[in-house]
Structure formats: C-alpha cells, structure tokens
Design a protein around this nucleic acid. Structure first.
Lengths: 208, 208
DNA sequence: GGAGAACCGTACGTTACGGTACGGCAAGGC
DNA sequence: GCCTTGCCGTACCGTAACGTACGGTTCTCC
C-alpha cells in the first residue's frame, strides 16, 4: 500500500485540531470553496500560521480529510462466539453503522471533496477517503464473513463478491443520491433498512 | 418537478455541439478545472462566442452536462410479451446497460462534476445528473418490475424497494470507487456481473 | 459587388485568492 | 528586566481566470 496514513502517534496539537475543526465546518457549509482567509478568520489564527503548519492549501485540505476520515471507526465485531444469531446481529450492526456513517453530513462532505479532487491526480484525497471508506469496510467485514463461512453459516465462493453484494444491498442508491444533493430522499429508518438488507444478504448467502 | 430539462426541440446547432464536445473532452481530461480560454482554443472559437451562446462559465457547464446527460438512453424494453424468460432477459439487459454506462469515462466525469457542484446550491448540475441518472433508471425500470408482478413472475410489496435493491445488486461499490479514482478495481466482465446481479435479484424477488 | 451579420483571434480590465511579509503582543527562559 | 519564540492581525504581491472589447475575416443576402 503506497499510501501513508497519518497515525495517531504523530497527532495534531489541540490548537491544530481546532483549526482543522474550523476547516471541516467550512467544508460542510461551503463545500470545497473554502478560502485560507476564511479558515484563518474562523479559527482565529493568522494565515501565516496556517501555512507554517500545513504548508499550503492542499496540505490543509489533506490534513483535514485525513484527520476526519481516520475517525470513522466501525466497531470491531466479536469473532469468538459465533452462533447463527450472533453472526446475524454482527452483520446487521455493521449495516446500521455503515448507513449511519454514509448518511452523515461529514461523510457526504468528505466524499464530495475526495470525488472532486480525484479527477486531477494532484493530491491523494481520493485515495485517502477510498482507503478509509469502502476499503476499510471491506477489510473489517471480510473476516466476519469468512468466519461465518468456516462455521458453515454462510456459503460463498468468493468473499470479495459477498462483501460487495452486502455493500450494494445496504447502500443501494443512497450514497450517490446524497452526493448529488438529492433532497427528495425521505429520511429513512436506518434500523429498518439495516434489517432488510441483512435479511436479503442471508437469503442469498445463508445456509439455512 | 421544478427542474426544466432542455428538450430536443430546442437543440443546439452543429457548431454549438462541436463546442460542447470540446468542453466535454476537456472535462474528461482535466476535470472541472477547464477554463473558458481552453474551451475556446480547443473548439477553435472565440471566447466572445462562448459567452454569447452560453452566458457564462456556469451556463457552458450546464449546457454540456445537460446535453450529454440527456443522451443516456436506456433501451425501452418491450412489455407486450412477458414470459418468464423475456422478463429475465430484460432485467439482465438493463443491468448490462447500467453497468456499461456507469463504468464509462463520461459517466464518471459527469457525476464528478455534478457531485462537486452539488455542494453549493449555485447551479443545478446535481439535479440534472440525478434526474438523468438514478431517477431516470428508476422511471424506466419500475414499469418493467410492475409488469413482472402483474404477471405473477415477481413478488414485492413496494416497487421502490425492489428497484433500489436491483440498483444495489448491480452497482454495488463500483460507482463510488470509480468516482473516488480507484485504480485497483480490476476490469470487470460486465456480462458476468450483470448475470450474477440478475440471478440474485430473481432469487430475492422471483416467484419460482 | 456591397452591406451587414456572425464569428475568430487576441488583447485588456477586473477580481479573487493563494501565498508572503511585517508590526505588535503575550509567554517563557536567563 | 530583557530577549527569544510563537502567534495574531493586516497589508501586500503575483497570478490566473472570468468576462469584455475590438480589428479582421468569411459568409449571406440583396
């Protein structure tokens, strides 16, 4: 993996995090059109400090996205006791968390920024969000699915396909419509959606 | 529907379409960072003409997106003869067309532009792509699904849910990963994917 | 063939924003 | 008590791109 993720050890100082929070707020409000002057004003700091800490505008953006994206932590599901009921609960919980994340303002904003910048290969924002979004989901879900297969609770040839089907069943057209600014998407009941997706997933891959 | 779609009657002249083609090419190449000067040079026209025809930069962008998005035409599937085999073929064909469109450079570009602009409510690019993308798919697929239900070939309470599940099964994480610039996504065999999604869809909603 | 319109190419004005420089102030060490 | 460090606020510079203006050229219509 060529991408280097800023780990928590080399974290930002509280003051720096305040600046990043200001930047993130502006991103959520105005999208990518935030200016360095606006960030400085919002964070009550000087532009000189901004450039000293983050190098340039792209550095500030990258730091903000990285810092925020790394916060998305899917709960690690317990693998030790793997009854059919436990597995189903784990999968359903995963679906709930995924939907909750994806429908949040911050996720929408970060994905918008990343998609915007993915067009020009100048920076790595696309990679960062990709790494902390879909690919992180895959990394966390696959072990669960494979444990389910070993326990003869799930049946599939390819765990990659199983994961991607799960993703599709849960997310459906929600994410792209939110990214495109759809306001007709009625407020969904995440519990209901997660349950339905889980049922469909087990209908396709369950062994009972 | 507050959105006005430019209909084919008030189409663009061939020269104007050449300009829009140039703009689209630049969009595919450079993303949203295209300049009016670059478009003028590529299309061998003057900036004055650009502004005369399209008003301003946003007008040019809107015209390009609208003109191109309207070209996405899913084949209208025949509803008259509705055997089980015919229905399955129609659905599978739909899946194939959907994947083909979504994986194309132009779709990725238009969706990127639209996502970028959906953040600020200044223009309607998000709405336009939404209207010609996910919502158009829904409009075209729903009648097919409902015909299948009337023929007792499909079973579902809510055609909206059935459509969205179909979308999820077909698209999965492909679109978001492409939008984020994922290059690890191996070139998929659209035929295979479409068949698999169709099988899964019928496993969930078929009556046999 | 001449008048007018449409349009190309280019040069110009304007603005906005990224990035830098500088004066002032508060805090901590000697 | 003074000096250094770090930071705030503001003023400033350079560039890039939007939008406009204008001379020259081709096409059309009479």
């Amino acid at each position: 993996m060529a991408l280097t993720i800023k780990v928590s050890e080399e974290a930002f100082t509280p003051r720096q995090q305040a600046v990043l929070t200001a930047a993130l707020d502006l991103l959520v409000e105005n999208g990518d059109g935030l200016t360095m002057t606006a960030v400085a004003r919002r964070a009550s700091c000087s532009k000189e400090t901004l450039y000293k800490w983050f190098g340039d505008r792209e550095g500030l953006l990258t730091a903000t996205v990285q810092w925020q994206a790394a916060k998305v932590r899917m709960p690690q599901v317990d693998r030790t006791t793997l009854s059919a009921k436990k597995l189903r609960e784990s999968v359903e919980q995963f679906a709930r968390d995924l939907l909750t994340t994806i429908e949040g303002d911050i996720s929408v904003t970060l994905n918008r920024i990343a998609v915007t910048h993915a067009a020009s290969d100048k920076d790595r924002l696309g990679e960062i969000v990709l790494e902390n979004g879909p690919l992180a989901i895959r990394r966390r879900l696959k072990p669960i699915l494979e444990a389910g297969r070993e326990a003869r609770l799930l049946r599939f040839d390819n765990s990659e396909d199983a994961y991607r089907t799960f993703f599709g069943l849960v997310v459906r057209d929600v994410q792209i419509r939110l990214l495109l600014g759809d306001k007709t998407l009625k407020q969904t009941d995440i519990d209901v959606e997660a349950k339905a997706a889980t049922n469909q997933f087990f209908a396709l891959y369950g062994t009972d």
